[in-house]
Simulated assay, not measured.
Amino acid sequence: MGGGPLVVIVLSHRHPAQVARLVDRIRTGTDTVAVVHHDPSGEPLTLRPSSDVALIPDARPCRWGRLSLVEAQWRSLRWVADNIPEFSWALLVSGQDYPIRPMSAIEKELAASPYDAYLRHFAVTSDPAEDTDPWQAVTRRRYLRKRRLPRTHRSVPLPFARRHPYRDGVGLYVGDMWFNLSAAAVHGMLADPLGDRLLRYLRYAPIPDETFICSMALNARPALSVANDSKRFIRWGPDASHPDLITAEHLDEIRAGDAFFARKVDVSAHPEIPDLLDQIAAERPSS
């Protein structure tokens, strides 16, 4: 897919020491840049910008389940495109993610990849008979038949389908917000007027981060080659609203997989995990 630095965008709001360690690990790549969007309403973060570390200027507060989280992704991608124009790929992680492979191996895999993007995604059609996962039915109601009340987290069902942008050849897609996008994918998405339409529509949608990037990438014209894989190790408990914390019990499964990052790491609950994940990465080939 071409040369240029790999950019890892970090969305963070807490645990500044953990974020600093994550950034240090990202910087171990041969040609990798860490770009940090830190929520100014969170714990203060002190990172010194350098040739391979950048802080998004004028970062804004991000709230879970609100459009502000999507806007932070979009604003970060635009900043990368404007300020690191020669980049090859852009990856999004949270401040509680952590690499589980050498960064140089991630660089090499993406440089040789036949894909334009890696995103875990599902199509949500108008026909429930086409569903392959119960989540599709949930998101069909969420994005087409519900509206979030302004200034709240509460959503109310509507007796009719909302007038939406998912028509005239534009499909509704849902999935993880943690993306891996080639430079060609990023530039094409940023130039697509669909972005403004979706941002307006999703302002009052529940949990818009689950659909925005997926819908932009899967509706791109010309079509992108998208692998249905986020390259993240994530585990969810039954009916959980947040991923499980990574513990020592996950290590064998992590070691057996090929994901780039693991989430969710919490050093206040399990301070040993970053060292254990470093050991796993060190055991793996760098190419």
Rank of each mutant, 00 (worst) to 15 (best):
V265G: 07
N180H: 11
D168P: 11
V265R: 04
Q136H: 09
K108V: 03
N219H: 07
R25S: 11
A59W: 02
I254S: 03
S12W: 00
M1S: 15
R48M: 13
L110M: 04
G65E: 05
A117N: 03
P40W: 11
A20F: 06
D192W: 10
M189L: 13
L47Q: 09
R162K: 11
H13N: 10
E71K: 08
L202F: 12
L91P: 05
S268C: 10
P114S: 09
A269C: 11
D168E: 15
K108C: 11
P102H: 04
A81K: 11
S88I: 00
E71F: 06
V53A: 04
R232D: 12
V156W: 04
G175H: 04
G237N: 12
P243H: 01
D133T: 00
I254L: 03
P49I: 00
L45M: 06
D168C: 08
L77Y: 06
E71G: 06
R263K: 05
S241G: 13
A184E: 14
K108I: 03
F122Y: 15
R197I: 09
R147S: 11
L245E: 13
A129P: 09
D116S: 05
P150Y: 02
R232E: 14
H121N: 14
L190H: 05
A256G: 14
D229V: 01
A34H: 09
A90W: 00
I84N: 07
G257L: 02
L194S: 08
R167A: 15
W178I: 00
V174E: 15
D229S: 03
R78W: 06
A256N: 13
P57L: 01
A240F: 08
M189W: 00
L149G: 06
S225A: 14
Y118F: 13
L55P: 04
R101L: 04
D168N: 15
E107K: 10
A281C: 07
F87S: 04
T32I: 06
P193L: 04
E272K: 07
A111W: 05
T139N: 13
R203T: 14
A81L: 10
R197W: 13
R141D: 15
D39Q: 01
P40Y: 12
